[in-house]
Design a protein around this nucleic acid. Sequence first.
DNA 1: TATGAATGAGTCTTCATTCAT
DNA 2: TATGAATGAAGACTCATTCAT
Lengths: 209, 209, 209, 209
Amino acid sequence: MEATQSRWHRRKDARPAEILEAALTVFAEKGFAAARMEDISRRAGVTKGTIYLYFDSKEALFKALIRQSISPAIAGAKEQVNNFRGPAGDLLRLVLTRIGHFIATSDRVVLPKIIVAEAGNFPELARFYRNEIIAQGLGLLTGLIARGVTSGEFRAVDPGHVARISIAPLLLAAFWRTSFAQFDDEPYDHAGMIETHIDLLLAGLSAGG
Amino acid sequence: MEATQSRWHRRKDARPAEILEAALTVFAEKGFAAARMEDISRRAGVTKGTIYLYFDSKEALFKALIRQSISPAIAGAKEQVNNFRGPAGDLLRLVLTRIGHFIATSDRVVLPKIIVAEAGNFPELARFYRNEIIAQGLGLLTGLIARGVTSGEFRAVDPGHVARISIAPLLLAAFWRTSFAQFDDEPYDHAGMIETHIDLLLAGLSAGG
Amino acid sequence: MEATQSRWHRRKDARPAEILEAALTVFAEKGFAAARMEDISRRAGVTKGTIYLYFDSKEALFKALIRQSISPAIAGAKEQVNNFRGPAGDLLRLVLTRIGHFIATSDRVVLPKIIVAEAGNFPELARFYRNEIIAQGLGLLTGLIARGVTSGEFRAVDPGHVARISIAPLLLAAFWRTSFAQFDDEPYDHAGMIETHIDLLLAGLSAGG
Amino acid sequence: MEATQSRWHRRKDARPAEILEAALTVFAEKGFAAARMEDISRRAGVTKGTIYLYFDSKEALFKALIRQSISPAIAGAKEQVNNFRGPAGDLLRLVLTRIGHFIATSDRVVLPKIIVAEAGNFPELARFYRNEIIAQGLGLLTGLIARGVTSGEFRAVDPGHVARISIAPLLLAAFWRTSFAQFDDEPYDHAGMIETHIDLLLAGLSAGG
DNA sequence: TATGAATGAGTCTTCATTCAT
DNA sequence: TATGAATGAAGACTCATTCAT
């Protein structure tokens, strides 16, 4: 009796997260318009009506998904960057490796694809994502690289450009995993690619280059 | 254009291309599901029914769009690569600059976004794109880099990985243009970023690195 | 030159009949609503627009078809009945055999099916058919049978009822030919059935019965 | 009926039958193509969408209608025939009277018309109807008549032919009721016609004829 | 809190009809 | 007279949303 009740209660509290989890998967696979509320609800183990107890509409569900799915990773990286004492090159390697691991393993990897795909239909969401998430992430990397340039560890490059260059192969891996990986005969070695990328990047950045 | 006074244009030959052009824009902006045939037809300067004189269905229109929008750029690059005599580094710079120019100026730049967004709903199209277009493009770059490695001009890197690393910032620029550029206060200098990318990449690849 | 012109002219005169002929077939097969003007035009060897040179609309074409497709057979039968001198039984046999032959061979046999099927959508046409064609046909038979009753050759039956009974198996054959005959493993012997029908009917009608 | 105050009836069990009933009426009046789903739904007291909760498509609804509308009458007649002990003539009179009553009173009487009208558009349904329903019905009558012939009660006729002759006036009455009866100034006496038919038929069949 | 039958606005698609050629 | 590209009204069907239970 007690157990059942407590499970019931836990359930009630967990519902929104379960629904968002299901929504992430379905939106990633179908896109916003083609995703059916029925699909999401079934995947979340509830019925259609239940979703509306927690979210006002399909659009509200989508927006909640985007808004809640972001900060943690960024926050962690930010902390790592701020606390690090040592060469900028080592830190860059650390950060990129960490993001690469995230992209290789997390199911949040589908978010960039969702955002890009729906930027036209949800411009305010795209703007939010661009101005909050992307700006933060790029800002972090840009600062890191600027630090290396200032210290003379890196050549005199544009830190903003290099921030994007640094992240590009990782994002490519994310898109690949969410769009084309299903057709790979054998899984592509994203980790190896990212390692190569970091090596090349740091070699290219090194002052003596 | 001159016959605007009448509704009866009679443009059988030009119609399909006009419709595909309109479809490219609308599908890129809305995605497949959210695009309305009426929007496409209006943009093409015809009415709904006219599209169906040339394409069997919305899906057929979409597939035709993907299938016809591809080869030319690849073909041009392939020719360039095969005809080039000189250092692999120079050729790599040439090819990437060329693709960068294409991405900065062509309206075909939206295609990758469309494909990625609809990979879940049109897997056979994603497979086709992956196996034909992407495989060709990556193959071209991979061969080019392998040539540089073999000749000793480049360090001993995995050419497949480096091919992806080379193209990643360009694709990132394409996604940015089609998704977030509308929110830039001032246009981002993609060309400068790409130049920086090429410089870093070649520096990183150079045997002495 | 001359031949071509004359053929052209003959063509022009023949168009309406050709179109009606095609319409008869298509309407019979598909029904009014499911019949496409394009199908009719193609079968008639012209294009869609041409039909509208001769008929105002699909509905006008349909009505013209019904109205022109009727009288000849009835007129012939009427003449036969009026000119016949001899026992009513012989005449009845003659008339039913003649109609049976018509049903077995003419492509006009599809008309009853068309009328019955579209009675709900074209009530004024159904009324016209009922009041003109059917009334005439039944009137002819009714008179014939009444003659036999009056003369004492037939038993005292209701001539109106017997008129319908006489014609029923022939109509059944018509419906069968236009709806189910395509599924017969071997063609059903409608002629034999009609002969049996006439024999039974006359035996039943004969005064001594 | 009592819960008319609300739109939310919740009648899952009754719905399919209600919809089929409405479909029978509308399809009979308009034919398949001209029948609008909205008409059917309105007549069933629901909205368009509700039909699709129970039937996949207009075509599926139509087919379900045909397939479920059939056996009962046949089954009843079959039982009657098999259980009867007595002269074949009496049994024939009984069966035809029974079918005549059905035709005069049941709203299922429209089915033959629907089938005949749509045989061209739904050949597999026409084949099904022909091979199952009609074959059974004719088989029943054929057997009955053959029994009478064998016993010497009837003349040596072809039982298959006579089965069709027996049923023809009844079908004619069915077609009349569903197509032309609306234009009758006074209702035609189908029952009297059928009685006359039976009398004539049995008189014609009687061995001494 | 959860259900799922019912709703109805929104879209794709068809095809009778028009009219410049 | 004949063509057939183009039109646009009409109708099948989907699915986000509601609400009685």
